[in-house]
Nucleic acid binder design. Structure first.
Length: 409
DNA sequence: CCTCCACCGGAACGTGAGGAGT
DNA sequence: ACTCCTCACGTTCCGGTGGAGG
């Protein structure tokens, strides 16, 4: 029997899993007709040889911004080719090209200018790009995805890009900015804001019904026929709708549900698989947050975990937590921070939703914050111990347990 | 009604890392 | 290569406070 034979045979669930990935662009985008038409209308100026207005697109994650823009871009380029107009769309992700230099260097290279990875002054790179585009009559639409990330490091990119047209003789350039953050224009220079935001398109979150439609459409391609039980799609949609209608989340959920069903060797995807998937995604999300926490925050969190393990109660005063925190620091040989700082760290943990804290006054016994864990302790344990500086903590627990026993005896 | 606990949380300041400018 | 600036992280200092118990 071949090693891979059972893997091939077990593929009874999925027909084409890639359809569920966020990078997939469907041929039809449900419930985005309005936005697509608006975008197409604005960009169609390019086909008439005019410069399209600059556009700003807003919407939370998973509202179809990127997919819509890519879809319209495809259609635009195809039509341009048919009618022999030189129109191209360049897609740039601001998370990957996260400095002005990288953006311009990338653009310049597209237009056959040789620009080194680094070293040149930024304005020279910009000039190389400008000259490169202007070689021919054409219209270039630059899509800046996650533009808010790029702008955090200075809005000069946008300033330069939005002013480039006045220095171009043959070519035309317009900018489409995509942002998750609705308030990001506040940080922009007023001139940039007005020139970039000539047109604005908002992508509202999907509701549960709309999410269902999206999932249905993708499921048809992604899964083999009849493997999805009836309640699966509505349940995925409902879970995702609870969290600001994120379609990416819904698709993830559906995909993970399928994977779980597959791994369990089931013939069908059932609602219980969706619930398992939901839990798994949740745990992963928490683990990811905790993993990237600074060391001392991890120790504070460990302190809360330890306390809730060793005592019956769930809530602890900041004093209790601080002394446990100091104990742990002593055990793992790390200089403890002050109580003041720890109080800020707990506030951050609260912001992240890992603990919940409320100020209570206990009269004679002072005023304090009561803090409790607001996630499953089991989803924290492994990720906390995975920090190499904290790995000895598993031993710590035994030691305090012993100390407690001795005290009692 | 006053006191006083056990912290909260604001303000000012110190420090080192990293970026921009030159 | 250099200075200057900003920013995140921490510390020190301290005024503020809701309510149980006297």
């Amino acid at each position: 029997m071949n090693l891979f034979e059972h893997v091939l045979r077990s593929g009874r669930i999925f027909a084409n899993k890639d359809v569920l990935r966020p990078s997939y662009i469907p041929a039809y985008l449900p419930h985005r007709k309005e936005q697509i038409e608006r975008l197409a209308e604005i960009l169609s100026a390019a086909l008439r040889g005019e410069t399209p207005s600059n556009i700003l697109i807003y919407g939370k994650t998973g509202t179809g911004k990127t997919a819509t823009v890519k879809y319209v871009a495809q259609e635009l380029e195809r039509m341009a080719k048919q009618i022999g107009s030189k129109t191209e769309v360049i897609y740039i992700n601001g998370e990957i090209f996260d400095t002005q230099y990288r953006v311009f260097a990338y653009l310049a290279r597209i237009f056959n200018r040789k620009v080194p990875m680094m070293g040149w002054p930024t304005d020279v790179v910009f000039e190389a790009f400008r000259e490169g585009v202007d070689r021919e009559r054409r219209c270039v639409i630059v899509v800046l995805d996650e533009v808010d990330k790029l702008v955090k490091k200075g809005d000069e990119v946008l300033y330069n890009l939005s002013r480039i047209n006045s220095d171009l003789r043959r070519a035309k350039v317009s900018v489409v900015g995509i942002s998750n953050d609705l308030t990001f224009t506040d940080e922009l220079d007023a001139r940039v804001r007005s020139s970039l935001g000539e047109e604005e398109i908002v992508f509202p979150p999907y509701n549960a019904m709309q999410l269902s439609d999206i999932l249905k459409q993708r499921a048809e391609l992604a899964f083999r026929e009849g493997v999805l039980e009836e309640g699966v799609i509505p349940l995925c949609a409902a879970f995702a709708a609870q969290e600001h209608g994120d379609a990416r989340r819904a698709l993830d959920l559906l995909r993970v549900s399928g994977e779980i069903a597959e791994r369990l060797g089931e013939e069908k995807v059932r609602e219980e698989h969706v619930r398992l998937a939901c839990e798994r995604i949740e745990t992963n999300k928490i683990a990811e947050v905790v993993r990237t926490l600074p060391l001392h925050s991890k120790i504070v969190l460990s302190a809360v975990v330890m306390l809730s393990k060793e005592h019956r109660k769930r809530r602890f005063t900041s004093g209790e937590i601080y002394s446990m925190y100091r104990k742990i620091c002593g055990f793992v040989n790390i200089e403890p921070l002050t109580q003041r700082r720890v109080s800020d760290l707990t506030a951050e943990l609260e912001m992240l939703g890992l603990v919940s804290a409320t100020v209570v006054s206990r009269g004679r016994y002072g005023r304090t914050k009561e803090i409790s864990l607001s996630v499953q302790e089991s989803s924290l344990r492994d990720v906390l111990l995975s920090d190499y500086k904290l790995k000895s903590l598993s031993a710590f627990r035994l030691r305090t347990q012993m100390l407690l026993n001795e005290e009692n005896a």
